[in-house]
Amino acid sequence: MKQVVAVTINGEAHELAVEPYRSLLDMLRNEAGLTGTKKGCDVGDCGACTVLLNGRPVNSCLVLALEVNGGDVVTIEGIQSGPDRLHPLQENMMKFGGSQCGFCSPGIIVMAKALLDENPNPTEDEIRFALAGNICRCTGYTKIIEAVAATAKQLSSGKEITP
């Protein structure tokens, strides 16, 4: 039987009715209409479904929807700095070529944001460590790492970085 989940998603209060066996991922995609969060494996191995739950990055496929009752969720659709302003991570993922097929990009961007929130000046190794759970099959990671490093530099210096 469906139960109601009261949850804040991207700053907006929602009440969504879901079955107890639904994942947060399915709730976001099917009930909240937020399909930016992707299902690449559904068992926590690929990171495409990464969202911030109460500020922390998690695989939304491994969270039951009912568990987030009263919680706060941020998805790729809520990462932007303003309605018409992209987050610098989004800008740099485009500019540096960190997004090819794009299926992993939402998870990568959310994970990278979580990293930069916690550690504004990560080393390359720290970026690689943070992204270990996000599979990208297109880029070889080089350009993703560059995009995240450039964003860190940009956020701390206030200057735009070009490839």
Binding site: V58, V63, A130
Partner: peptide, 9 residues
């Protein structure tokens, strides 16, 4: 253990 996303849960 897994990824940071997994370890947060």
């Amino acid at each position: 253990v897994g990824s940071i996303q997994v370890r947060n849960r």
